[in-house]
Design a protein around this nucleic acid. Structure first.
Lengths: 177, 177
DNA sequence: CTAGGTGCAAACAGTTTGCATACCC
DNA sequence: GGGTATGCAAACTGTTTGCACCTAG
């Protein structure tokens, strides 16, 4: 295999410690954008929405409605599924989140940081760890292919289901399976 | 945009008339492989399974359990969802079908013709027409990327959601939307 | 004040499962 | 004959909706 052009790794280190103030800035700017959008749409800003949205972006992972609800309940114990689902739909409609189906029966929501190019995923079939990547070679080729077929791309979905190389990857079926 | 290397279009003409005897041969060889697999696994061959599998491969499209049931009912009016779902799961387990989620809330099943390379899809967001394609440039690049990340690909999922260029494409939201 | 948002419970859609009966090997 | 498959209905899961009450603008 020849050496490849540089890879643009978008996010490869989950659970990493992050500079707290930088993180706060990030969240603040997202919340500001969110409130602006609400206003533009004539929608209301509520405590629930704020907590849900902030939690969603603070956790910053491919989360399910279920998981999100659980986290939000720490702040708002009386919140129900309906509000979480409705807020997630709002985020999707307003392009703050992208729903993804990785084939395990529940929708996951991918936080969209502003104008992030759409990224793709490698998902370990055993441990379910998800790595994000983008690659311009792929993207350009896809554009060209769509063009050839007379289609104009709105969005793409590209996932590689693969085995990670970690020797201690859990759930890996062994030879004795 | 420069001219591209040849595209391998796998299936672009739905509803096309096909040579009947060649079609019968194809089905026959699939059924033979299916029966062989059943035997290898110590599973039973039944009327229902045969009709479901034959219908599935004869229709040869990204079908939902619902649609398949409806077609099978023409031959077996008393068949229920359970049998269809169980047979589809059997086909998936035995690698005769691949479940796909195109984001409309129900699983579609993609018939796997023997060793077909895994193909990708372009889906019109308006008329939902699905075009299949494969492209070696993409595939090789993905292999290299996975390698770079220390992953070994088991399968991929690549879908382009796009607008087709048909002027009469139904469901297209017009400017007056 | 009032349109829009929330919480709860009930409804829903797609899929799976338990069980008695029917059938293949 | 014995274990597997089927058909039916009931259960289950993830998600949506109806409605009375609440709250931001």
């Amino acid at each position: 295999m020849a050496t490849l052009p540089r890879l643009d790794i978008v996010a490869e280190q989950p659970n990493q410690t992050v500079d707290t103030s930088a993180e706060d800035d990030r969240i603040e700017s997202i919340m500001k954008a969110f409130h602006k959008r609400l206003q533009e749409e004539g929608l209301k800003s509520t405590k629930q929405r704020d907590v849900i949205v902030e939690t969603f972006f603070r956790l910053d992972k491919h989360i399910t409605a279920d998981e999100l609800l659980e986290h939000v309940r720490e702040d708002l114990p009386r919140i129900g599924y309906a509000t979480v689902y409705r807020t997630l739909k709002l985020l999707v409609d307003q392009n703050f989140a992208l729903p993804k189906d990785f084939g395990d029966g529940q929708t996951r929501y991918d936080p969209l940081h502003n104008q992030d190019p759409q990224h793709d995923h490698i998902i370990c079939v055993d441990c379910r760890e998800i790595v994000e990547f983008t690659d311009s070679v792929i993207d350009e080729r896809l554009e060209a292919l769509a063009d050839d077929h007379q289609y104009s791309i709105r969005r793409k979905e590209l996932e590689l289901y693969a085995e990670c190389m970690r020797t201690n990857c859990p759930n890996r079926p062994e030879s004795d399976e």
